[in-house]
Every structure is written in structure tokens, then in C-alpha cells.
Write a protein that binds this DNA or RNA. Structure first.
Lengths: 215, 215, 215, 215
DNA sequence: AATGAATGAGGTTTCATTCAT
DNA sequence: TATGAATGAAACCTCATTCAT
């Protein structure tokens, strides 16, 4: 494993293409399932270039992860500053998570795989990134509770419900399309497309959190 | 891929050991990451015996999945018959899902991986198993809504929140132990252990579903 | 690197063929120059069998070395017991070294390469084997000196002269054949073949060691 | 392989650095073990420059060898002219060989490797260089014998004993340091350092060559 | 039913060499 | 001259699968 500090400084096209393709492939088939050959071919890059620009497979994986989660963690912290009430912050949080997964569905899949593996193989840099995100949620809920606007709850429950639901929804689209009879049944009462799902989650989460849902 | 109908007829010890070990290994490292050698060694079985008793790697995987999800789907249907109100049924559902994951943490992990892969490689038998489970949830919520006890909601939201939160919680134990500073912060307001987490989920879900949370 | 204890117990034909071929190849082209593929092909063995029976390239190399030098060291110790005077022991030593290199020219070459590399990559087991051999020489000369039959000398000088000359002679046959004009010149005064060379060394060494070469 | 005539015409610094580093690296790990990348990095030179200034790996190797052995051969011939008696010439020869190896230990190692490989891959220019050196020894001993001062001996024996012992001693320093218990034993009777070793060789060789060692 | 050995395809990684700038 | 990037062949090693016993 080599140095993994992101070198996005230079507009290094090849590196960029490798990273993007790698993210895609890792998310589709996981670390073990990914083939360096396949990444190279898909990125239109000579296989040796991956080793030249980035390093071995493990390093590549780490860099992909760090790039994704590091950015997400930082971006979220900034967004939260602009929201005022805890309710708004929760909304911001949910929608940002959703947006991230939407823009780059790889993230949902990679994250699920890593959780499935218990994070055992997560490099420490990435663990820190995730910690940052969770920390944000803890803060929001803390604030809500101390302002007497939220029920006292385990913030981890909230975080995992949001993350879990969004991740699963994003990731399970293909499987849901294999179940048309079920999907049909649900389509009657609620549209299945993206926007409505997030809103559904938002509604449910807020209703379960806020003390007077008289609003 | 060979025939995959479970042959639980005989108390075949070797087969049993293979299946259990395989479940464990697949859950830890996924299908691609699993090595037939490793499964054999861990099960104390000659590698060729896996091929003799069960078949190739893919078949082994399918049989493991089917055994797990088939049982879970059937068991749940029966349990739900014993519950009366939609609220009780939701509780039963949550706790059963939780119990299943608790008894055999492999399931959570395998499921997450499969969702991460978009279920692309899920054999149809298993897709049916999952459909059965989702179908149950749809029914419960349907019932609750038509009895005017539940807000109208997208049942998929509910299902994915429950499944997602429980799966993530189960699967992420190792990662959470890597984050003691975060875990500490949350321990102050809510115990992190298993029982409390499910109850937290239950409370949040019910609060978000039921119409009068005056109760 | 895996366990390297020689398992000559079973008449494992494949392992034997691998080891012998490996010795040959390593001696011809050195560790770095040797190709696992080539060894496998020359041994008429599937490449994977090398990894199955022995382990990786490094392990294979270590086992080859240990087998050779271990045997040589042990055999020499026994032979020396049968000789009486220090002079006889020196002769035994010289001729045994010569015989070993003669029976298996690989040894000379491998040893030279290792010395050239400063033994940097010699595994410890093999270093011990070599130490045993050197130890024998030290003892002989010690004995000769204390019996007042040998001049006081640095035993390392003697050992390296013997080893060096024999190794070089064995190893340099091909190069000498490239120099016919030189070889011709020398053939006039001394036959170049094997037997005479050892005898030449023996004579020179004894003359330089013994106090009264009254003969 | 490209043209290999030394182009020492210009004080070409880059070429010089490449050649020196290459000598070092080749001597440490041999031809096959050497990496062009490593040589370039160690020489602080862009890898492509090696190809630009010198040529491919084989050419580089040949030039390194020729430079070393050509110089040595020529220098020796001159030195021998200044010595009078065969005894003096033998001393000159021994000490010059020793000095050469001392000033540039690479030579000992490279030579050993080449001998180990049977000189199979030695380019003809270098074979000539070596022939020149051997020729000198043959002449000295011839002279000593015809003057009735030396026993009749095979000059190759003498040459290989000297070369072999010095090469081995130089090259085996690292391995000897791995054997402190042996080294200690010998330190009692003879100091192990460089100067004494050559003198030991000189004494032994002369005693074995000269007719009346009453001197 | 069980075992150890065998196979061949394919995976990751390295390396000498060349090219564009 | 000098550089960083690119290339393709080949090196080492692994793995699912099968075979002989």
C-alpha cells in the first residue's frame, strides 16, 4: 500500500479516469469482485498505468473511498451551518445524503458493502470521514433535544434509519424491478420514484422526532 | 449450476457443516471474496467434498441464501397470523427481523452485499423469498391505513427504514468499535446495546406511523 | 514464506522433481533470473503444483539451499571423524568439497552467487549450515597448529582459498572454453582436467600449511 | 544490444553517474536482479536518459563490465613491468588484485556472478580482458619455473586460489558478520581485517610456490 | 464418502522499453 | 537533453474445479 493522499491538484486526466471508473466498478462488484484488468479496460487506460499513477489495488480502493467520503463529510458540515432549526438541519441532512447517493450511486453500494464487511477492511482515513458524518447527526439531535423540540432518542437509530433506508432504496432499484407484482401493488399508494421516497423518509423521520407535530 | 433444492432429509453432518461455514464465510467476505479452499478448511472438510455433496461455488451460495431467506419468509408469515392489530403486527415484524439477524448475523451481511450488488446475482428462488417478506409489510400497512390507524405512507419507506437500520446496526458493530469517541458521546443519551436499539427503532417507527401518538 | 523443513520423508516424486529442477535452474541463472514457469515446465509439473507442494519462489529457493548445504555440512562432519592426522583431515576436506561440487555443479554456482550477493538474502538456516562447514576447517587447522605440524595461519584464508579455487574452477569451465589460446598454453605444463586441478590445490595447500615438507 | 565502445571523450556527468550506479546495482543484485528503474532513481537520472545516453540494459551491463575489466587488465600489465623477480611479481599481482577489489567492491561481486553463470553471458570484449589478466599470471609462473625458483605448478590453480580467496573474502563480509561465534573463534588466532587477509594469502601462496622457503 | 494431487485459466503486479513534449 | 506518461509482454501467484485412488 502506497501513499493515498488525493492528488487532485493537477488536472491529471488519466488519474481522474482511473478513479472514476474504479469507483464505478468497485460499487458494482465490490473490492474482491473487481478486476484490475476490467477497470483498466473500462477506463481506456493501460493496466500498468494504474500502478504507475496510483498503486496497487488496495491503494486504489482506499483512494476511491477517501475521495468520496472525505468530500461528503466536508460538504455536509458546511451545508449544516446554513440551516437554523434542528428540524431544518435534519431535512438538510436527509436531502444531502440523498443527493450524494443520487449523483453518484456508487457511494451507496460501496458503503453497503463496507458495512456488510463490518468495516473490517476500511482504512483509517475513511473511518474518520464516516465518524465526521455521524458526529454531525449526533450534534443536530442533541440540539433538538436540548431545545425541547425533539423526543429524546438514540441518534444512531435515526442515522441508521436514514442511511439504511436511502442506501437500500438506491441500491435495490434493480431488485425491485425484478418484482413487478409487488412494485405494482405499492405504486397504487405511493409513487416509487426517487423524489417521493426521500420525502417519505423525511416525513416519517420528522414525525417520529418532533414533539408537537401540530406544526 | 446444479440443482439447489435443499436436501435436509438426512441428518447429513458434513453437508450441514459445509452450509453453516459457507454462510459464515460468505457473510464475512462476500461471494467474490470467499474461497472454496477457505470454506473447506474452516468446515474441516476435504475440498472435493463440497463438490460431491453440494456442487460448485455458485450452487453453494444459492443454497445458503435460499435456506436462510426461505425459512425467514415462511416463519414470518406464521408469526404475523398470531398478531391482531396492525400496530402489533408491525412490532412483530420489527422484532422478528431483528431476531433473525441476531441469531445469525450472516444474514444481515449477506443481504447488504446483495442489495449493494443490486440483487443482480440473486437467484430467482431467493428473489421470491424476499418478495414474500416485502409482501407481508405491504399488507400490514395497507391494513393499518384502511382501518384509519396509520397515516398513508409508502410501505417501502417503512420496510427499508426498518431493514436498513437493523442491517446497518448489526453489520456495523465492528466499525462502531473503531469509533470510541463517537460511541462514547452517544452512550450518554442512549445505551448502544442491541435490545435498546430495536426498541428505539420500534418507537420511532410507530410514532411515525400511527395517527394519534397521544396513546 | 512458508515452513521450509525438508519433507523428504515421503517418496514424493513430484516434490523431488521440483526440487532437483529448481536447483539446476537456480544454479544456472540465479534466483532473480529463474522463472517459476521455466522450473515447472522443465520439471514436467503444473506450475500450481510448485505452490501446492512447496510454496512461493522464495521458499523454494530456501528449501533447495538448505537441502544442499545441510547435507554437505553433515556429511563432512562424519567424514572428518574417520581421518586421523590434521594433514589427512585437510585432504579429506578438500576432496569432499571437490566431490560435492563435482556431483552437483549447481552447488558451486549457487554458492558463488550467494557470496556475490554478500549472503544478504541467505535464510538463517542456510547460514547455520555454512557456519558448520567453516567451523570444521577452523577445528582442523587449530589442531594442526597445536600439534606443531602447521604454521600458524588464518583458517579463513585457507578455507576461502580452497573454496574459492574449487568454486571458480568448477564454475569457470565454460569461460575457459572460450579462451582456447590461453588454455592451450597452460595445457602444455599441466593438464586442465578435473582430477589434476584438485591435486594441484591439495599440493599447494599442504605445502603452505605444513612445517616440514620433508615428505 | 547497441554499440558499446566507451565514449569517455566528453566529461559527460550524466553518463558517469549512470555507469557508476549501474556498477553498484549490478554488483549487489546481479544482472537479472537489477531494475533499470532502480538504477535511474539511484543515479538521480530520468530513466529514459539511460536509453538515450547508453542503450538498453544489456548494453549498459556490457559497458560497465568492459570499463572495469579493461582498466584492470591494462593497469596490471604496467605494474608488472616494474617488478623484477617472479616473487615480487606474484606479490604485485596479489596486491593489485586485492587493491582493485578494495577500491571497488562491485568488481568482486560482478565477477563472482559471472563465473557462477559460467561466463555464458559475458560479452567477448570482456572475455578478452580476463584472458589478458590470466595471461599475466601464466607468464609470471612460467618465468619462476624456468628460473628454478618455483615448483612446477598449474598456474590456473594459483590464479584461481588467489582470485577465489580474495573474491570470496571481499564478497562474504556481510555473511561473516552474521556468524559472530565463528568469527570470534578465528579472531583469536588471526585478525580478520582486510590487510591481514591479503598478507595471509601472500604468505601461503609464496610458501607453496617457492622452492626454498628457508628464505 | 473421502483424500491429496493435479489442472488450466485468470488474477495482480512488474519491468524493459518507447513516445510525446 | 530531459521528463513523465505510456505500452505490452511476461512474471508471480491464486483459485475453482476435477481426477485417481
Amino acid at each position: 500500500m502506497q501513499d493515498t493522499t488525493p492528488q487532485t491538484s493537477r488536472g491529471d486526466d488519466t488519474t481522474r479516469r482511473i478513479m472514476d471508473t474504479a469507483a464505478e466498478v468497485f460499487s458494482e462488484v465490490g473490492y474482491a469482485g473487481a478486476r484490475v484488468d476490467a477497470i483498466a479496460k473500462k477506463a481506456n487506460v493501460n493496466k500498468a498505468m494504474i500502478y504507475y499513477h496510483i498503486g496497487d489495488k488496495k491503494t486504489l480502493y482506499t483512494r476511491v473511498l477517501h475521495e468520496h467520503f472525505g468530500q461528503a463529510a466536508n460538504r455536509m458540515r458546511e451545508l449544516l451551518k446554513q440551516a437554523q432549526t434542528p428540524e431544518e438541519k435534519i431535512k438538510t441532512y436527509i436531502h444531502y445524503i440523498n443527493q450524494v447517493m443520487d449523483e453518484n450511486p456508487s457511494k451507496a453500494a460501496i458503503m453497503m458493502r463496507e458495512m456488510a464487511g463490518g468495516g473490517r477492511s476500511l482504512p483509517d482515513v475513511v473511518v474518520e470521514d464516516i465518524a465526521t458524518i455521524i458526529g454531525s447527526v449526533v450534534q443536530i439531535i442533541d440540539e433538538g433535544i436540548s431545545q425541547n423540540r425533539f423526543h429524546p432518542v438514540n441518534p444512531m437509530c435515526v442515522h441508521l434509519m436514514v442511511i439504511g433506508a436511502l442506501m437500500c432504496h438506491k441500491a435495490s432499484r434493480p431488485i425491485r424491478q425484478k418484482l413487478p407484482h409487488i412494485a405494482d401493488a405499492m405504486d397504487q399508494m405511493a409513487a416509487m420514484d426517487h423524489g417521493d421516497f426521500v420525502n417519505g423518509i423525511e416525513t416519517l423521520i420528522l414525525r417520529s422526532l418532533t414533539k408537537q407535530n401540530t406544526a
